[in-house]
Structures are given as structure tokens and as C-alpha cells.
Nucleic acid binder design. Structure first.
Length: 428
RNA sequence: GUGGGCGUAGCUCAGUUGGUUAGAGCACCGGAUUGUGGCUUCGGAGGUCGGGGGUUCGAGACCCCUCGCUCACCCCA
């Protein structure tokens, strides 16, 4: 029970039973990204620590208390990436992919992210995201495209009851103006703020709007809304974004209090939320970050992206439609030294001749009875029996494990043909 | 980081107010059937009762500490 070594807190193993669902989800997401002509990039898991503090904002929770940061042997401060956008922006600048319409303008990535948080359902210290980022396009079309792309993924995965919330954070200037107004408002009502929001007052006023504390609901609803302070440019951008969603038939609600926790967002932000996963209901979040590329040392380049949490999506999928794993077509039962060795050679030959064939050899010996038991449990359609008699006559016995068909004998030379036939008849 | 619940076999869980050698089901291995799975049936193996300390004649049970899981806050995907 008490193993000597355990996985690190908040980091879990995905076991074979779950992997089938993971692969299914990943395949659907990849296919949809391809359908929208996004190209995959593979990025390092480790970056210079400053990349994240600079991009995400050192007052954010993610940077100030959730990063895995360490000095490497040269003393350089490195971090395990807590999210994907900062590294992608770095790669895009470093490799000169920022030019509009160039090869790097629509990208996606997949991989583990790390945050030192207290684990709970749907929240892990090592978790996997698939994200997409678009560079070089200021218009709302790409914002809407990303949202539609996600909505398509949920449809293809058969997920229902996923709510889309959208908002706009306007331009940097507008937001600065608004922040000052909001600060005045909450400072004037500071006595009504709960402890968390007192802290937010110092760090990031906008986050007060996000509070779940029902006692503060009135105060928040009375607060000035950013939407009333929008500059015309942002207002148009957001309006067109919403219109495109309408055109595409993607349902959404505007949530003026949707703020998001990373500093780099501007204009469009969105979240897909489910009620089926407990407190960690956001399965995908994203938005526009028009200033980040320039802030990180690249040419001024508007950008927008999202990332989705695979653990949460996989859990959602498996609650609804469990995906069964891959089972062998044939399980090879062999007994006796001569037969086992003949079976080994035969299996390799069949894999040469029939690349589609999934064939499992019995391992660990055992009686025919025991081997048949394993054959049954493997889920294989057929048991292929090779004993001394079969070897002498250069044939195998094929027994269907899922039907009452009579056991048949097939010459070893004719096996490939027979298996092809069975496949054509959908009996494998 | 804060708070609640829970840790007994690979898994799901019993275990009386503290009392002898800690149990069941499923799964696993073997036999009944010396070359045939699923359904039976019989047997076997498998536990430092999460870890450490304490109270006691005696602790799986009570107390303290610790680790882990879990749910919520917070944060976010």
C-alpha cells in the first residue's frame, strides 16, 4: 500500500483505460485544428523565468505564487511553463514568424503545464493543454474563428450544456481609464469589501468584479461597467465579434464581469464553462492580447488565442461516452517449447504481411485453460491455437471467442489470406 | 495559502463501548476438465490497517504530529 515512491502531489498517471478517451479527444481536436489550417508547433516545457513574469504579470497569482522556478547549474532562473502563450510568443518572435500571412500566423500546441496550486477536482499541478494562437490580424474575424473552432470541437465530442461567456476588456488606454474609475468606486465603498477583495483593491481592481461572494453581489452590480466606457474602436470590434458568432449560430452570453486572470489580455475575452465538473468549470479560455508581442520585444503584432484543459475535457467526455480501448484481433495460444517458438516466428511473419493486424502473443506460459482465459479477457475476436499437433501439420486452430462458430483449422501458409477474409467480413 | 471529509488486500468496502490469529466481494494464481475461455465449484496467494510518536496490560479503533487523497474557498484550464 505505502509504496516507497509516489507521484508528486497533484501530478497523476493516466492509465491504459483512460488513454483511449485521451487519444480520442486529442484526435478530434487535432482534426478540427487541421480543418481550420492551424499548424502545430512544439515548444519547450522550460523557459527563462523572466519570460513569464514579464508576459503574464508579476502581480498575478500564477506568477506570484504558482510557478515552479529553479536555478539551473549555471545559476540561471528557469521556470516550468505555467501556460502556453508566453512561450509561443517567444518562439514566434525568435523565429521571425510574426509576419501576417506567413507560415506562423495560425499555430497550435499541446503539452503539460505546471502550477503549484492546491489540487482538487479538475485542477492538477501538472495538467495538459491544447492551445491555439493567431498572429497578425487585428480584426474580430479571427477571434470569432477561434470560438467557432472550439464550439465545433464540443459538438464533435458530443458535449452538451457548455456555456460560452464573452466580454471585452477594451484597449489598454480605455482599460486604464476604467480602472481608475473602478478604483474610486471600490475605495469609496471599501468598508463593504470582503478580505479577498481588499487585497484585489491593491493588486488588480478588475478582479473584484469576478468575486463569487454573494454578500458583495449588490456592490458589484452597482459598480461602473467597462462596457459604458468603451472607445468606439473596441465597441465596434466587440460588436462585430458578436455578430459573427450570431452568423455562425454559436450561442453566447455577454458577461461584463468576465475579467480573466492574466494581465496580457485586451479586447475580446471568452470562456467555455460547464456545470458538470464542480468548482473548476472552465474547460477553455482565451482572448486577444494585442500588446504582448511588442511588449516581449517583437514587432507590434495583434494576436489572439485560447487554451483548453484536457483533463477537464477528458473527464467531461468520459462522464458521457466512455471510449473503449483498442483490443487485439487475435490472441495466440501456444504450449510446448517447439510450438511457442513456432508461434513467435509466425506472429512476426503475420505482422510483416498484415500491418493492420493486432495480434497478441500469450506471455508467461500457463495451461491451455489459463491461456484461453487470458485470450477471452484480452477482448480478441479469435484465439489462434498452436500446439505440437499444429506444428507437425503446419497449421493453426482458429477459435472464435465471440461467436459459436466451429473451431477451424487453417494451414499456416493460408493464414494471411484467411485473416484478410475475416477482416473483409468484419468478423475480426 | 485557508477550511471540511477520508486513508484497512491490486480495486470496492466491513471490522461492535479498545480485547486472542484483521474479514468479504471483485480481480489474480491453481485444481475439478493432464489441448479450449465465458457459467459453476473447490483451494491458494496477497496486509508494516498511509507513516511516526503517545495513552493503555492490550490500539485498525483513542490522542498528537506528518504524508497522501478528496471537496470547497482562492485561482484558473
Amino acid at each position: 500500500m505505502s509504496a516507497k515512491f509516489q507521484s508528486v502531489r497533484g501530478m497523476r498517471d493516466v492509465l491504459p483505460d483512460e488513454v483511449a478517451t485521451w487519444q480520442h479527444v486529442e484526435q478530434v481536436v487535432r482534426d478540427v485544428l487541421s480543418a481550420y489550417a492551424y499548424k502545430e508547433v512544439r515548444l519547450p516545457v522550460v523557459e527563462v523565468a523572466e519570460l513569464f513574469t514579464h508576459a503574464i504579470g508579476d502581480a498575478t497569482d500564477v506568477v506570484s505564487k504558482e510557478m515552479y522556478t529553479f536555478a539551473d547549474r549555471s545559476g540561471e532562473q528557469l521556470s516550468l511553463r505555467p501556460e502556453g502563450t508566453a512561450g509561443c510568443v517567444r518562439a514566434v518572435i525568435q523565429n521571425g514568424l510574426v509576419h501576417r500571412g506567413g507560415p506562423g500566423h495560425k499555430l497550435w500546441y499541446q503539452g503539460p503545464m505546471f502550477r503549484y496550486e492546491k489540487p482538487q477536482r479538475g485542477r492538477y499541478r501538472c495538467f495538459n493543454q491544447i492551445g491555439a494562437e493567431v498572429y497578425g490580424f487585428p480584426g474580430p474575424g479571427v477571434d470569432a474563428e477561434l470560438v467557432c473552432l472550439c464550439a465545433r470541437i464540443w459538438r464533435l465530442l458530443g458535449l452538451e450544456g457548455i456555456r460560452l461567456e464573452v466580454n471585452t476588456l477594451a484597449t489598454r488606454d480605455t482599460r486604464d481609464t476604467y480602472r481608475a474609475v473602478l478604483l474610486d468606486y471600490f475605495q469609496a465603498n471599501a468598508d463593504q469589501l470582503d478580505a479577498d477583495s481588499q487585497v484585489r483593491l491593491e493588486k488588480n481592481v478588475l478582479r473584484i468584479l469576478d468575486s463569487k461572494n454573494p454578500e458583495m453581489r449588490d456592490l458589484i452590480e452597482q459598480a461602473p461597467a467597462l462596457i459604458d466606457y468603451l472607445d468606439t474602436e473596441s465597441e465596434q470590434h466587440f460588436g462585430q465579434f458578436c455578430e459573427l458568432l450570431d452568423t455562425a449560430g454559436v450561442a453566447y452570453t455577454v458577461n461584463p464581469r468576465l475579467v480573466r486572470g492574466l494581465d496580457y489580455y485586451s479586447r475580446t475575452v471568452f470562456e467555455f464553462i460547464t456545470e458538470s465538473l464542480g468548482a473548476q468549470g472552465t474547460i477553455c479560455g482565451g482572448g486577444r492580447y494585442d500588446y504582448l508581442v511588442e511588449q516581449q520585444g517583437g514587432p507590434p503584432t495583434p494576436a489572439v488565442g485560447f487554451s483548453m484543459g484536457l483533463e477537464r475535457i477528458v473527464e467531461l467526455v468520459s462522464l458521457k461516452t466512455p471510449v473503449s480501448g483498442v483490443q487485439p484481433h487475435v490472441y495466440v495460444v501456444a504450449r510446448g517449447e517447439v510450438a511457442v517458438s513456432a508461434a513467435f516466428g509466425l506472429c512476426e511473419r503475420l505482422r510483416d504481411e498484415l500491418p493492420w493486424l493486432r495480434i497478441e502473443q500469450n506471455a508467461g506460459g500457463g495451461s491451455f485453460k489459463a491461456q484461453f482465459k487470458r485470450a477471452d479477457r484480452s477482448g480478441a475476436s479469435f484465439a489462434m491455437v498452436i500446439g505440437e499437433g499444429e506444428v507437425q501439420q503446419q497449421l493453426v486452430s482458429l477459435k472464435s471467442l465471440r461467436t459459436d462458430d466451429e473451431q477451424a483449422q487453417v494451414a499456416m501458409d493460408a493464414l494471411s489470406k484467411e485473416l484478410n477474409t475475416l477482416r473483409a467480413q468484419s468478423r475480426l
